[in-house]
Amino acid sequence: MSSKHQKRLLELSINGEVYELAAGCQETLLEVLRNRLGLTGTKEGCGTGECGSCTVLLEGEPVLACLLLAVDCENKKIETIEGQSLEGRMTPVQEAFLEKGAVQCGFCTPGMVMASTALLKRNPDPTEEDVKESLEGHLCRCTGYNKIMESVLHAAKSYPEKD
């Protein structure tokens, strides 16, 4: 019963905006994003950290929102898929996923995009092995991954922060 679970006020910084809300101490970041804030772009494929669909960035690093408690994310910069294409302009990663056919059902796509974005920020010139290391925790059942690999390597070429 929800009343059994203690709630507290949280201040979360998501995609550059500050949200103040009351949430249970046991609620995951994923539950807060999806159920309390309506940010449903982040997906839950398993809820147990096995599929990568719920990947968001915490202080720029990819994390599994289904395994993190929301209370532990206060005072940290959270980025979700909704913050990626501000003012209607897609990022190079999003454009590459579109152009190279890396999207089919699209359920894994937000998590893939977030993890790929973090990779390219950290390493603007990744090898295939680097991409595999970054995305091996992300399941995709539709594409066989070939076009996802192609997309990330293609996005790297046009990544703005590349020297």
């Binding site: 997906k43 999003q94 056919g101």
Partner: peptide
């Protein structure tokens, strides 16, 4: 032709609503 998916923009931006997203 290699036409891009019509639902692609919705899906790469997280705007696509699946049954799990209906609130």
């Amino acid at each position: 032709k290699r036409i891009l998916r019509k639902d692609g923009p919705d899906k790469v931006t997280g705007k696509a609503l699946y049954s799990v997203d209906i609130q």
